[in-house]
Computed example of a mutant assay.
Amino acid sequence: MTQVVSMPPLLRLAGVRVAYPGHGWRARPVEILHGVDLEVGPGQTHGLVGESGSGKTTIGRAILGLAPVAAGAITFDGAPIHALKGGARRRLSRDIQVVFQDPYTSLNPSRPVGDTLAEPLYGQGVSARQARERVAGLLDQVGLPGDAMRRLPREFSGGQRQRIAIARALAIEPRLIVCDEPVSALDLTTQRMVLDLLAQIQRDTGVAYLFISHDLAVVRHVSDVVSVIERGRIVESGPAAQVTGAPVHPYTRRLLLSAPVADPAAQRLRREAYEREFAGERAS
């Protein structure tokens, strides 16, 4: 029998706690994450889903070095990264990039798109000519015309701006992209186009995604593995089909039942099931 060797995770969070200083004199720190464990494999999409305030974005910020890790460890390719500062943190951006929810606020409104996309390349020592060629290739990869590099962000639609943000994240060929609600501000048709684009890029490059969203339907569509977070704790994790199709934890079931469906009759049944689920939990 051939032995199956599992690949070690690309990203691992082990017992991660994040706490912010309290307000006022002698105020105790406010803990947001309470011992989070999470893994993202090479070339994998790990969906992280939860309601607003659940702590899902804080996980992304901790990975990027934007939130203070009070305890636990974050490792990338086996090396600890949660305490990196300065130049070491900047060098890590070669491997870890991010796509934010609002692409317009993450793009410089006064700079042409080509300059924005070339900036991380210059930071890696790429020449101006090579940067222009790379930017043209990135724009083509995300389905935008070559003349887009001379235009300003305001000249594009929301979906096009998100494509630009994805192109910028891809510029230095990272191994992991943290996608923080990347389609929640887009209409449904544009959402599908952007999700299909992310899937195609993953097939072409092998990049891994940590896909953060409040929408269980979106997470189910794009993820290999799904983790559900409630009030700073992972309450359920497993293969996407299992977690989104037959959830075990009551919170995951509520998320699933609260997602709207197009059929009015099915929506009514789902609403009734949600009310029963919520009433049963309150009674217990």
Rank of each mutant, 00 (worst) to 15 (best):
residue 202 Q to W: 10
residue 202 Q to L: 12
residue 202 Q to R: 15
residue 202 Q to E: 15
residue 203 R to L: 10
residue 206 G to K: 06
residue 206 G to I: 06
residue 207 V to C: 01
residue 211 F to N: 10
residue 211 F to S: 04
residue 214 H to E: 08
residue 214 H to S: 06
residue 216 L to C: 05
residue 221 H to Y: 12
residue 223 S to R: 08
residue 225 V to R: 14
residue 225 V to L: 13
residue 226 V to D: 09
residue 227 S to D: 09
residue 228 V to F: 02
residue 229 I to Q: 05
residue 230 E to N: 15
residue 230 E to F: 13
residue 231 R to S: 09
residue 231 R to D: 10
residue 232 G to I: 05
residue 234 I to A: 06
residue 234 I to R: 04
residue 234 I to S: 10
residue 236 E to F: 03
residue 238 G to D: 03
residue 239 P to Y: 13
residue 240 A to Y: 01
residue 241 A to S: 11
residue 243 V to N: 13
residue 244 T to Q: 03
residue 245 G to A: 11
residue 246 A to C: 09
residue 248 V to S: 07
residue 250 P to S: 02
residue 253 R to V: 05
residue 254 R to Y: 02
residue 255 L to E: 01
residue 257 L to Q: 04
residue 259 A to S: 14
residue 259 A to T: 11
residue 263 D to T: 08
residue 264 P to M: 05
residue 268 R to N: 03
residue 269 L to V: 14
residue 270 R to I: 13
residue 271 R to S: 10
residue 271 R to V: 09
residue 271 R to T: 04
residue 274 Y to H: 06
residue 274 Y to V: 07
residue 275 E to R: 09
residue 276 R to E: 13
residue 276 R to P: 09
residue 277 E to Q: 13
residue 277 E to F: 08
residue 278 F to C: 15
residue 278 F to P: 15
residue 279 A to R: 14
residue 279 A to V: 15
residue 281 E to Y: 01
residue 283 A to M: 00
